[in-house]
Nucleic acid binder design. Structure first.
Lengths: 209, 209
DNA sequence: TTAGATTAATCAATCGCTTGATTAATTTTG
DNA sequence: CAAAATTAATCAAGCGATTGATTAATCTAA
């Protein structure tokens, strides 16, 4: 029973994540989510307290493991900055593409220019990921591996922005790339390897002395 | 009266653009927009027919001149691809940063993964801008100025994605850059020149043979 | 006077959420 | 063990509030 309960909650979160990504937080109604998940509407509030509670539950489910994964790369003292960069890119691309619905949802909320409790929470979490990346760059510059004139901050904008463009605006990026980036098969066979290779080449070109 | 009417409509669109950027299309109510604009709610429908009509009016007001500006750069036969790239970046950065509210609004809508009439219209317009950029790159590669191994498509993702990161997620980018990117003074003195210089350096590093 | 501009009042629809009741599962107790 | 008591899960119904939109009355200006 305990197992089934967890599965059901997980199922609701799966559906909610997709619907939020499709229609946005405001555009998605609790009736729609519960309907597509095949549960009574009151269950959302029973399990998660509120609509915002559902959103936060999706959030918490995704971030914890990802966070520690990236940190372990950043703190690994046995590899040099170039290798760290490669590893970071590989892990980041895999994760972001696999959980694209979540990242679409995430980005939509954080792009509201008016602050609120929710955006503040999201900002804090995202900044941790950003800091790991920035530390890698800073270390590489300090050690003399990377070009000291590189703009660390805007480089952050480039890696995370390029990802956002590909994942968060699928209608555009699909037209640009010539295949459906929302299709899981395309993601694994076409998008991921190409994105990784491109990003490494780009960073190498910019960061090398 | 005719003049005043135009001014009033423009004022409504200014307010609506900002409110849409702050709260998203769904999150912004017609009551809120009319309230902040100081007009009766029914005026929105009187002038623009519907909430979506307001949104589209904002859209039409912004795109036409921008479109032809970029096209004139792309079609200029008196300058080489490198110069075109520089000009494109300058114009694009200026425009996007100046009209950041509009672009936040724009990006939020296009990042809904579920298609609708609105997203289709937006997609078409955006693709025109993208195509101008891509033509410049393709021309440069063809002429031998740019590295033929460059990934044209992902380069599109990088320039537009980097911009999105800086402009559309101001809470994040402000923390990364260390100043408020929504402040107009910071935009002109700090963000624009730095963004332009960085983008040119980055593209040069990646595209040079 | 009259067409256009503006208003307050109102519409039906939908929103998130709560309720009270019912069923299913678990625990307690004799 | 089995009856009783308790808890958890699920449901249909409906709440008040808000949404975008419309109406009809009023006002303004040429």
């Amino acid at each position: 029973m305990e197992k089934e309960k967890t599965d059901k909650k997980d199922h609701i979160l799966d559906v909610a994540e997709r619907v939020f990504a499709e229609l946005g937080y405001d555009g998605a109604s609790t009736r729609m989510i519960s309907g597509e998940a095949g549960v009574n509407m009151a269950m959302l509030n029973y399990y998660f307290g509120s609509k915002e509670g559902v959103f936060l539950a999706i959030f918490e489910r995704r971030i914890s493991t990802f966070q520690s994964l990236l940190l372990s790369i950043g703190n690994d003292e046995n590899i040099n900055p170039w290798e760290k960069l490669d590893k970071y890119i590989d892990s980041y691309v895999d994760r972001v593409v696999n959980n694209n619905c979540f990242h679409i949802m995430l980005n939509r909320e954080i792009s509201k220019s008016k602050k609120n409790e929710l955006t503040d929470q999201i900002t804090d979490i995202i900044m941790k990921n950003v800091n790991v990346f920035q530390d890698i760059i800073a270390e590489g510059i300090k050690k003399g591996d990377f070009n000291k004139d590189a703009d660390q901050q805007l480089l952050v904008a480039t890696i995370f922005g390029t990802k956002s463009y590909l994942v968060n605006t699928p209608h555009i990026s699909s037209k640009v790339l010539g295949f459906d980036v929302m299709d899981q098969d395309n993601q694994n066979k076409l998008l991921k390897p190409r994105f990784k290779a491109y990003m490494k080449t780009l960073l190498k070109a910019y960061l090398q002395n």
